[in-house]
């Protein structure tokens, strides 16, 4: 029983690691631009599907490049709103990214069809006191940790990261001290689409995907981003981990099909009751 639970928890953490690579870029775009990029799921699906179609070893590279190109498109739409309309209503841009998601999903459907695509996962597993954990799950977790560390280094140490943080605190103040805010925000879209692309490649290895995964991945990213009640990469990471664990454990213990509703129920309970303290897992002082 305990061994089984350990196994499910490990699988949940591995799933959460993929979810984190969807939620973290969405949260970074959110804090930097005030916009939730709803097309995040689309970048992941395009990257994953292309990786599966092209195959190893170049598939993942092609997929991530395509995700970067789509991120540039979303960034272009964002800039278009600011150039053409001097837009301050972030919700309109969110709706525009929703439109972009519809277009991406349709593009994937019309070019790659309805087939479930997957790549052969890493073979083998390790046995930890009876709990079987696949190498693929460990690989996903490892990649997620590496990306998170690289992201943290970029945000803390690089000029682009500092500009992103300045834009997040106040885009106007950042402009006044000479930061090219719009260019930084555009690059944030591109960079974060790349991270979502990595998530897509890992997902196509671990669980496979169809064109319809676009909406699911976006919902997962969105849920992870807002679940802990505060914007930022760290809360998004923990939110996604929590979702992954809840999904894996409920998949194991609930009757077939009911598990799909548990993450949604969790979101409703957490957000509606307001029980989660705003500073939980955020790294901020209470």
């Amino acid at each position: 029983m305990t061994v089984q639970l350990l196994e499910f928890l490990a699988n949940g953490i591995a799933l959460g690691a993929v979810y984190a690579l969807l939620a973290v870029p969405m949260s970074v775009v959110w804090v930097t631009t005030d916009v939730i990029d709803v097309s995040t799921g689309g970048y992941a699906v395009v990257a994953g599907m292309l990786a599966a179609v092209v195959g190893m070893p170049f598939g993942p590279i092609v997929g991530i490049l395509a995700a970067l190109a789509l991120g540039a498109l979303a960034g272009g739409v964002f800039l278009g709103f600011h150039k053409l309309r001097k837009q301050r209503d972030a919700m309109l841009i969110v709706l525009a990214t929703f439109a972009l998601m519809l277009a991406i999903e349709s593009g994937v459907l019309s070019t790659l069809g309805t087939d479930n695509r997957f790549l052969e996962p890493l073979p083998g597993a390790i046995n930890l006191s009876g709990a079987v954990i696949t190498y693929q799950a460990l690989f996903n977790l490892g990649v997620s940790i590496v990306v998170m560390v690289a992201l943290a280094a970029l945000l803390k140490l690089s000029p682009l990261g500092l500009q992103m943080r300045a834009s997040a605190i106040s885009d106007r103040a950042a402009m006044l001290v000479g930061v090219a805010v719009r260019r930084t925000q555009f690059l944030t879209f591109v960079f974060c689409a790349g991270i979502a692309g990595i998530a897509g490649v890992l997902a196509v290895l671990a669980i496979g995907m169809t064109y319809a995964s676009t909406f699911i991945f976006t919902t997962v990213a969105f849920s992870g981003t807002v679940l802990l009640g505060r914007a930022g990469p760290l809360p998004a990471f923990w939110g996604a981990m929590l979702l992954g664990i809840v999904t894996a454990v409920s998949d194991a213990y609930l009757p077939n099909g009911w598990a799909a509703g548990v993450p949604s129920l969790l979101i409703i309970l957490v957000l509606a009751t307001g029980r989660m303290p705003a500073t939980a897992f955020t790294g901020a002082r209470p």
Partner: peptide
């Protein structure tokens, strides 16, 4: 299957031109 492309593009244009 291409309807989403059409609707997505139209929505972006409408939001840009007439929010």
């Amino acid at each position: 299957e291409t309807h989403g492309l059409f609707f997505g593009t139209i929505l972006v244009l409408i939001l840009l031109l007439s929010p």
